[in-house]
């Protein structure tokens, strides 16, 4: 409706500009162009932005889920996990790395298990198979650290998958920059190999 109104106003002003050719008409026309451009921009953002967001949220397998979809209350900080690993060796959480295998084999949290990239359907299937025998109340910690938290494509879908499978005690390790900076660079222990 708004677009239709812009279009009819614009046609009127074009007519005024062509017929009269005065500077007032020109200024009005300039303002009109700007309004039309803003209007079109809003329409485009609502159409495409809204669609892609919905697509990300609605993807059936959870891929495309942002790391920001994980509630703050379900995040665990590096120092807490490190002290947990050192102080409670018998009550260890089950830790899964849900990023690339190449990164896992270079360095990973001691005792953690490679579970495949959460951004890919194959990774989510592998994760599901790894948790098959676990109690739903088991404390599970997921981490990736492939890229900055805001860009991580793996942690959000992996978290969602475990949530969908009924696991009630899942935490995600918050790595602001990446595993190298936020875990290895801070001197926490790592293992290497497969």
């Amino acid at each position: 409706m708004a677009v239709k109104s812009f279009a009819s106003d614009l046609l009127c002003l074009l007519y005024v500009q062509w017929k009269i050719g005065d500077s007032r008409g020109g200024r009005m026309l300039e303002g009109m162009y700007r309004r039309v451009a803003y209007g079109l921009l809003v329409v485009l953002m609502l159409t495409f932005g809204g669609t892609s967001t919905a697509r990300a949220q609605l993807s059936a397998d959870g891929t495309g889920q942002s790391a920001f979809s994980i509630p703050q209350s379900q995040l665990i900080q590096t120092d807490i996990l490190d002290s947990m690993l050192q102080k409670q060796p018998k009550a260890r959480p089950v830790i899964f790395q849900v990023g690339s295998h190449l990164m896992y084999s270079q360095a990973h949290i001691p005792g953690s298990i490679y579970a495949g990239p959460g951004s890919q359907a194959s990774g989510l299937t592998l994760l599901a198979s790894k948790v098959k025998t676990l109690q739903k109340s088991q404390l599970i910690i997921l981490y990736c650290g492939c890229c900055p938290w805001s860009h991580c494509p793996n942690i959000g879908p992996a978290f969602k998958r475990l949530h969908d499978l009924g696991f009630t005690n899942v935490k995600a390790l918050y790595l602001a920059n990446n595993f190298g900076d936020d875990w290895v660079g801070k001197g926490y222990r790592v293992e290497q190999g497969n």
Binding site: A107, P110, V184, R189, E191, Q192, G193
Partner: peptide, 8 residues
């Protein structure tokens, strides 16, 4: 197995 703890 290459499973040893060491700093990079």
């Amino acid at each position: 197995c290459g499973l040893f703890v060491l700093p990079l």
